[in-house]
């Protein structure tokens, strides 16, 4: 049996459009795979298929060798956790209650759930606002609470859907650094983003590099290491700009420039 998440020739069509075209991908525990691509490339669709929220028209999404759509929600929640772009906060429940709900999959007492939730909140530095309503938290604080939920769910695989989209640079740095720690601690991470530079926060200098998968119009355009010399060039093709890689303090950074070289 293969552990981890495997997408096997996944194709998704909707209203005559092909959203994903024969996409194959593997994320084992201990892998960091970043899906990058322009808007509308199929990144979110790919994540929804991996989560079992969307059934592919052909191909399979497998978790630990089993089809995700055949797993019960509880079994799936034991293997995959999901960090959305932004935590919906329809009601002013406390941060603690928010994190407790991530413990739903565990057959345990309320007290045990609360203990685990407190621990997860403390781990992300959110212990001080455990009892505050999530509707009153700032975007950065709320995303920390969401990460605490991710930790509390205790899954070997973590799926991130542009989790830093609404965060300021300090919170982006914090979030991706934490994801880097989770990765090096042995979790498998699948991260969807259109901002390739956030990955440098997860990639501590001198350690293994994340894998970068370029998605374009529903197809895998390339799969390269974050270290690969031609990554900038390939990213530029993907986004339709000229992209140069440079290094700052040992971190790899990509800068997008107009294709003609001069002013656009």
């Amino acid at each position: 049996m293969t552990t981890g998440l495997t997408l096997d020739a996944v194709t998704v069509r909707a209203r005559g459009r092909t959203l994903l075209d024969c996409v194959s991908l593997r994320v084992a525990p201990g892998d960091f795979v970043a899906i990058v691509g322009p808007n509308g490339a199929g990144k979110s669709t790919l994540l929804r298929v991996a989560l079992g929220l969307l059934r592919p028209d052909s191909g399979h999404a497998l978790v630990d060798g089993q089809d995700v759509s055949e797993l019960s929600p509880r079994e799936r929640a034991a293997r995959l956790a999901w960090l959305p772009q932004r935590l919906e906060a329809a009601e002013p429940i406390t941060a603690l209650e928010q994190v407790v709900s991530a413990r739903y999959r565990f057959p345990e007492s309320r007290r045990a759930s609360e203990t685990a939730a407190h621990k997860a909140l403390a781990e992300v530095g959110a212990g001080s606002f455990a009892m505050r309503p999530i509707t009153e938290l700032s975007g950065g604080e709320r995303q920390r609470v969401a990460v605490a939920g991710l930790l509390a769910q205790e899954t070997p695989l973590v799926l991130l859907d542009e989790p830093a989209n609404f965060l300021d640079p300090a919170h982006q740095l914090e979030l991706y650094t934490r994801m880097g720690h989770l990765w090096r601690a042995g979790r498998g991470i699948l991260c969807v983003t259109h901002d390739v530079n956030v990955l440098s926060h997860a990639h501590a200098p001198g350690t293994r590099a994340p894998r970068v998968v370029g998605l374009f119009q529903g197809r895998v355009a390339f799969e390269l290491s974050h270290d690969a010399p031609d990554l900038g060039e390939r990213l530029g093709e993907l986004f339709g700009v000229r992209m140069l890689a440079t290094a700052v303090d040992g971190h790899r950074v990509f800068v997008g420039l107009p294709r003609s070289g001069g002013a656009p």
């Binding site: 929220l53 799936r76 956790a81 919906e88 429940i93 709900s101 739903y104 999959r105 769910q153």
Partner: peptide
């Protein structure tokens, strides 16, 4: 009650946390 608590963050999120929505 327990399942409805998880519903607060949206149905898809609840599903990902193990609730048979």
């Amino acid at each position: 009650t327990r399942a409805l608590e998880v519903f607060i963050a949206g149905e898809e999120h609840a599903e990902s946390q193990g609730v048979p929505v």
